[in-house]
């Protein structure tokens, strides 16, 4: 038990360290670059007064280290600073959008995870036969296709031609859950398609890996049915790798969401980030970037923790 706890503590500490270093990297990414940031934001025609004002607002006159620590101090107290373009409190603007993004990602995950595992199992069951080959072909295609293509093809056929679902997905608090789900049904489907292929292929690989073990051969020699072998023997042993796969893909989902939100003009974090990158609103970009990175690091950490916990060898130390 103590070994398990030690490993877990180590992994969590590593995650926190990583988060701290990433915050430095994101901060550094926006200051150490060549050129004058204020000039970049305002353009060549800016007056010297405007430049001086912006430099003061951005705190560009202070040494970088001091700026970093005051930014970090604010972050730790939940203060993300104020937006340069709107003058609003960033934490307030982001809060609601983060909720919307998680809402979208949550429903995409609810649909894609069981579907990917089921299809992965089918691919293993009919290995090297047509269902498996079909699944591999679809996977190859969907890895090569940009997310926005899937999204626009979906809009073109499902929402314009068939009129089954709206293409502009604005949701608000006044809507019931059913209405919200109908509104975002298209982005959910597209996100599902985007992560499904990866998840399916990795699930297939994880289960196949288990299927090559000696105890599976024993079960086969006993004359058990194929599905019983997969369900009773292979599946329990592949839970850890499969959960790992799922978590890694959810981390991927968090990034895919950026493009999808822009396509469907969904009021989430991704659209907010892209919007403020083009406005060169650095405090907002830093805050959004850090939140995306934190979610990504968090999911990767959960993936590792699950594989540590699910490993029976670590639960029973000698």
């Amino acid at each position: 038990m103590s070994l398990l706890l030690k490993l877990l503590a180590q992994r969590i500490a590593l995650g926190l360290l990583l988060l701290f270093l990433v915050s430095i990297l994101i901060f550094a990414g926006t200051i150490i670059l060549p050129g004058d940031v204020a000039q970049q934001i305002l353009g060549q025609s800016a007056t010297p007064e405007a430049l001086a004002n912006l430099r003061r607002d951005l705190g560009l006159n202070d040494p970088p280290l001091q700026r970093y620590f005051s930014w970090l101090g604010g972050l730790l107290q939940g203060d993300l600073g104020t937006s340069l373009t709107s003058g609003k409190d960033i934490a307030e603007s982001i809060g609601k959008r983060l909720g919307n993004t998680l809402f979208l990602a949550f429903w995409a995950a609810i649909i894609s995870v069981p579907l990917a595992i089921l299809l992965g199992l089918i691919a293993v069951r009919y290995r090297e036969r047509w269902p498996d080959k079909l699944i591999s072909a679809v996977t190859l295609a969907s890895i090569s296709v940009p997310e926005f293509l899937i999204a626009y093809v979906a809009i073109f056929f499902v929402s314009v031609r068939l009129r089954w679902a709206p293409s502009v997905t604005t949701i608000n608090d006044g809507m019931s859950l059913g209405e919200k789900l109908h509104t975002i049904s298209l982005p959910i489907s597209v996100l599902t398609l985007v992560v499904l292929a990866h998840m399916m292929r990795m699930t297939r690989a994880a289960i196949l890996n288990v299927m090559q073990s000696a105890y599976i051969e024993t079960a086969e020699l006993k004359g058990l049915r194929m599905f019983t072998i997969i369900w009773k023997h292979a599946f329990p042993n592949s839970i850890a790798p499969v959960v790992n796969v799922v978590m890694l893909n959810l981390a991927y989902l968090v990034v895919g969401v950026v493009v999808i939100e822009v396509v469907f003009t969904y009021p989430g974090m991704g659209q907010f980030l892209v919007d403020h990158v083009s406005k060169r609103d650095i405090p907002v970009v830093q805050a959004c970037g850090l939140i995306f990175a934190a979610v990504y690091i968090g999911l990767n950490m959960v993936a590792d923790i699950v594989s540590i916990v699910a490993n029976p060898r670590l639960r029973h130390p000698k």
Binding site: L18, V258, D281, I297
Partner: peptide, 20 residues
């Protein structure tokens, strides 16, 4: 490892917010 712990699209967006 550190660079790869941030999704590349997100990092690129952060950098492009200050670069021409």
């Amino acid at each position: 490892d550190l660079i790869m712990s941030i999704p590349s699209l997100i990092f690129a967006l952060v950098v492009l917010s200050v670069m021409p």
